[in-house]
């Protein structure tokens, strides 16, 4: 299959890569660009582990064709912290014990970033509802919801 060159911004840096029309974004990110923080857990859009931000909106990279990100901006979990300074959500996840095996964590945190941008004052109900596409098998979601809540304006912290 013919490869096409595309250009996009990845975690704030310009990238030029060659992709086949059928290449999935998850494979481009993980296998070609070696950013393995984006996780595979189902491959068919049912778990949220592969979530990345596309122009700030959460998308499932296992269902996104790489070629469609041309000219756009992608943020993966690796792009969230500013050097050593963790993103407030990352810090909240640590402090609330919301990270167990951690396999859902990148997707959770990125989805939560989008939620907080959309609804900085999200209620617990809204958080539960927004996060329902991101599966976690370890935590029972309790500490995850707490962590996200603590980052809302008017949250506990």
């Amino acid at each position: 299959m013919k490869k096409t060159e595309i250009e996009f911004t990845l975690n704030g840096k310009k990238k030029k890569v060659e992709v086949k029309p059928s290449d999935l974004l998850i494979n481009l990110i993980r296998e070609e660009l070696y950013l393995t923080g984006t996780k595979y857990a189902c491959g068919i859009g049912e778990c949220g582990a592969c979530t990345v931000l596309l122009d700030g909106e959460p998308v499932l990279s296992c269902l996104t064709l790489a070629i469609t990100v041309a000219g756009k901006e992608i943020t993966t979990i690796e792009g969230l912290a500013q050097d050593e300074e963790l993103h407030p959500l990352q810090r909240a996840f640590l402090e609330q014990g919301a990270v167990q095996c951690g396999f859902c964590t990148p997707g959770m945190i990125l989805t939560a970033t989008a939620l907080l941008k959309e609804k900085p004052q999200a209620t617990e109900e809204e958080i539960r509802d927004y996060m329902r596409g991101n599966l976690c098998r370890c935590t029972g979601y309790v500490q995850i919801i707490k962590a996200i809540k603590s980052c809302t304006t008017g949250g506990e912290n």
Partner: peptide, 8 residues
């Protein structure tokens, strides 16, 4: 282990 996990 949490920090490395949260940073991906």
């Amino acid at each position: 282990d949490a920090r490395a996990k949260a940073k991906g």
